[in-house]
Nucleic acid binder design. Structure first.
Lengths: 196, 196
DNA sequence: GTCTATAGACAGATAGAC
DNA sequence: GTCTATCTGTCTATAGAC
């Protein structure tokens, strides 16, 4: 595939990524994407076989960026505790977007959970990445015993905060819960002091 | 309106309630509802002005049942701690449905959060009821100081567990989190022992 | 006749697919 | 840009109760 086509393909995926997040997958038509990136709708099927294919490409992109993010935290913070606190902070750093559109992973997973099968499993990949990463941090911090349970609990609390902040259009849910999570994390290792 | 019409109206609302929960609101067409309760689609507009009207009727019904549920707990359990523990148990009692279709309130709120305005606010009513009720229980237990924050946190954790159990089709999220919530609640009042 | 309720055909818009 | 399917919502004809 020549360069020009690849650029346009990336442009479609990038536009679709935003629209799927902001409006939801089912509420975003091909015409919406076409209008947003200024190409005729007929051209889609040169790049993608079906609408689900676009979704898969979008999910791939998100997964890549998530991996990069997690690796970035590992490099930046040597202490697993710091890494986990940093992870909890995404709900306050991105609070405005979460209040408006919810968590990108959560809303998509919930939307797909009621029907599709193939893209559904695919979209779960991001959650699995996060759980595995958090599990590794908890294991390094406290041993492998309860690491999975703790990792799940942390993800679950962030997810719940995102859902309710979005539903109520109220960022308080995010800020209060992030503080609670940070306190919960630091109470696990009372002999350390966390410093940004 | 005479009796016969009211019965059929209720039948439509009841069928729509199930379908909206199982398939989602946007993925349930009038034809779906019509097929499910065996009436022609043209007949809908004798009972409801628009599709949103059906949703409003569904939400009204859910709100009524929720109120009855909360009042039932108040009558059955005198101790606010018991009431809260009982509330946390809905995610394990209804685990099978939650795994398949998610939390009825959460999925609907999330679906509506990306667009509609009028039914959206309406659907939030159920969350507000629960938060207010839980806040009252926490206030009775520990005083009014942190009651709202604690009520939000509890709802948030249940919601997060529901989202992830649904996304992963894995009830473990629900069972583990319910135990964690119960332990968290009982740790707040260490001088009491909870007994079912 | 009139009110309640039923029945289905039909219009206009929009979707995905090619 | 065209094709087909489907969606919401409308329109009219009709059946029975009082």
């Amino acid at each position: 595939m020549p360069r020009k086509g690849e650029i346009k393909r990336q442009q479609i995926v990038s536009t679709a990524n935003e629209l799927f997040y902001q409006r939801g997958f089912h509420q975003t038509s091909l015409a919406d994407i076409a209008d947003a990136c200024g190409i005729p709708k007929g051209n889609f099927y040169f790049y993608f076989k079906t609408r689900d294919d676009i979704l898969n490409a979008v999910v791939d992109g998100r997964e890549e960026r998530l991996k990069a993010r997690l690796e970035g935290w590992e490099k930046k913070y040597a202490d697993p505790l710091h890494r986990l606190v940093r992870m909890s902070e995404i709900i306050v750093r991105d609070w405005a977007e979460i209040v408006r559109f919810g968590c990108p992973m959560g809303t998509l997973a919930l939307e797909l959970s009621k029907q599709d099968d193939e893209p559904r499993q695919h979209a779960l990949g991001q959650f699995e990445l996060i759980v595995a990463w958090a599990q590794a941090q908890f294991a390094a911090l406290l041993g492998p015993r309860d690491a999975l349970t703790l990792a799940r609990q942390m993800l679950l609390r962030m997810q719940g905060a995102a859902v309710l902040a979005n539903a109520f259009s109220d960022e308080t849910w995010l800020f209060e819960e992030q503080r609670a999570i940070a306190a919960w994390l630091e109470a696990m290792v009372p002999d350390r002091t966390h410093k940004e």
